[in-house]
Design a protein around this nucleic acid. Structure first.
Length: 435
RNA sequence: GGGUCGGUGCCCGAGUGGCCAAAGGGAGCGGACUGUAAAUCCGCCGGCAUCGCCUACGUAGGUUCAAAUCCUACCCGGCCCA
């Protein structure tokens, strides 16, 4: 009852946004939140050097809790991440070594910082690594302190396990045990960090609720949990990748802010409301206003622009978002390429796939196909030829044919050649300045 | 361990000596229409700057004028028996 500064509308807001899938006793949770700040944790497995859009809701929800006056604890699962999810058919993954794990953590932490505040005065976020309390636990201790409180019947009854047991591939003991590690995390945090709540995607519900049970059996305490629905497209597929199969990384080095921005720009009208509610901090009223305005004139793509700007700003910061917007306006805004400033091209060079090419390649007969391949426009000369036959390639704003030769006259600012493939794909060749 | 069926292009899946770079579907790409949308229609979709040649149908050999298709060995997967 120290701070009464918590936002009483948090739960209602989450529910209204559609971010509530499963919870433990909702009334008890509401009551607990009313009493003051709660410590809430959400796990992120450091299996790669960056998080991806699948982690976005978790990041945002932690942030929503912090904004509402609670204490967010992101957990980078050094222990669970080391073991990994062995569901793939190939050989079981070995423990990640310390170096790989450290590298992955180093990549993830800056992204976490983008969302939660570790320096706040009242309720700073705290980064957790479950390896700290898991690495030294002996197997006998584990069996006594965790296994003893859980029945196999209970574990087998979990949806995720049931599916795997009925399937042809079965489930390894390691993966079967995974939920115990996660439950142990929750119990440990409850006892040692005062963490009373865990949140996660609905696919985590089994693991999370097992942790809630473990807390009760081991300490008699009452822990809370909440999951959100998984973010899927209309056709039911996951949101983690672009249509082309590219993973939507949150690290700018792994996916440029421009590509990231463009992905959201291409969202469907039907999904705008949900995406705005789930992936931005706009209030529900603001979202509805944007959606209504969008519906007035869908072709203006106001909703997509707002969505892309908000998410890109959250993930990459306002400056990077501005660069992405400027680049997008430059290539999609309708202005002729000739009108773009040298500075705009500098931005484009950062945002678009850009290839350095020697000036001697200009004004040479038959340089076209090889330039297209070098620039990444086509994977092979055959494909380049096909694209040309299909009228799919432009230099700057002009469609070109297989007879075209790239010349100095095509360069913008005597340096850059903008190549379009189809309508949405842009590439830049950088010939350097005149020497 | 024995038997049996199978392993085909990004995925699914036809093809059982020449007409096979390999049907069909999906994904993807380009074009038209558009709103950088959806739906629809058209085209493409191994490589070689391409009317011909090369590389491909689990791997390695073999038979044949000719093999994804037949033979042998091996590897991998499903099912049945033990």
């Amino acid at each position: 009852m120290r701070h009464m500064s918590t936002d009483p509308n948090l739960l209602d807001d989450l529910i209204a946004r559609g971010l509530m899938q499963d919870t433990t006793d909702l009334e008890a949770l509401a009551q607990r939140l009313k009493e003051g700040p709660i410590s809430v944790y959400c796990g992120f497995d450091p299996t790669a050097q960056s998080l991806h859009v699948g982690n976005l809701i978790g990041l945002l929800t932690l942030a929503r809790f912090q904004r509402a006056g609670h204490r967010p604890l992101p957990l980078a699962g050094g222990a669970t991440g080391m073991i990994g999810d062995p569901s793939g058919k190939s050989s079981e993954r070995n423990l990640l070594d310390d170096d790989a794990l450290a590298a992955n953590l180093a990549g993830i932490v800056p992204i976490l910082r983008q969302f939660v505040d570790f320096e706040a005065d009242e309720n700073p976020a705290k980064l957790l690594d479950n390896r700290a309390w898991t690495i030294s636990v002996s197997i006998l201790d584990f069996l006594r302190d965790v296994g003893k409180h859980v029945t196999v019947n209970q574990m087998v009854a979990k949806e995720s396990v049931k599916n795997r047991m009925e399937g042809a591939d079965g489930i390894s003991f390691t993966e079967f045990s995974y939920m115990l590690l996660q439950a142990n995390d929750f119990a440990w945090l409850f006892e040692n960090e005062g963490v009373e709540m865990q949140i996660g995607g609905s696919d985590q519900w089994g693991n999370i609720s097992l942790g809630v049970d473990l807390v009760r059996r081991r300490t008699g305490g009452k822990a809370h949990a909440l999951t959100w629905p998984l973010l899927v497209r209309k056709d039911g597929t996951k949101y983690g990748k672009t249509a082309g199969g590219e993973t939507l990384w949150l690290d700018a080095a792994m996916m440029s802010p421009y590509r990231f921005y463009q992905t959201w720009m291409q969202s469907e009208d039907d999904e705008l409301r949900k995406l705005l509610l789930w992936l931005t901090f706009l209030s529900i009223d603001e979202v509805d206003a944007v959606v209504a305005e969008h519906a007035e004139a869908p072709h203006v793509r106001l909703g997509q622009k707002r969505l892309a700007k908000e998410i890109t700003s959250l993930v990459h910061g306002v400056d990077a978002a501005s660069g992405a917007i400027e680049a997008s306006e430059a290539v999609f805004g309708g202005a002729p390429v000739e009108a773009l400033s040298a500075m705009t091209f500098e931005i484009l060079a950062d945002e678009l796939p850009t290839t350095n090419v020697d000036r001697s390649r200009l004004d040479v007969d038959d340089n076209l196909v090889s330039l297209l391949v070098e620039g990444g426009v086509a994977k092979s000369k055959s494909e380049a030829g096909r694209l040309l036959d299909q009228n799919g390639i432009s230099f700057n704003d002009t469609k070109i044919s297989s007879e075209t030769v790239a010349t100095r006259a095509d360069l913008q600012h005597d340096r850059f050649l903008l190549i379009r493939k189809g309508k949405k794909s842009m590439f830049l060749l950088d010939f350097g300045g005149p020497s």
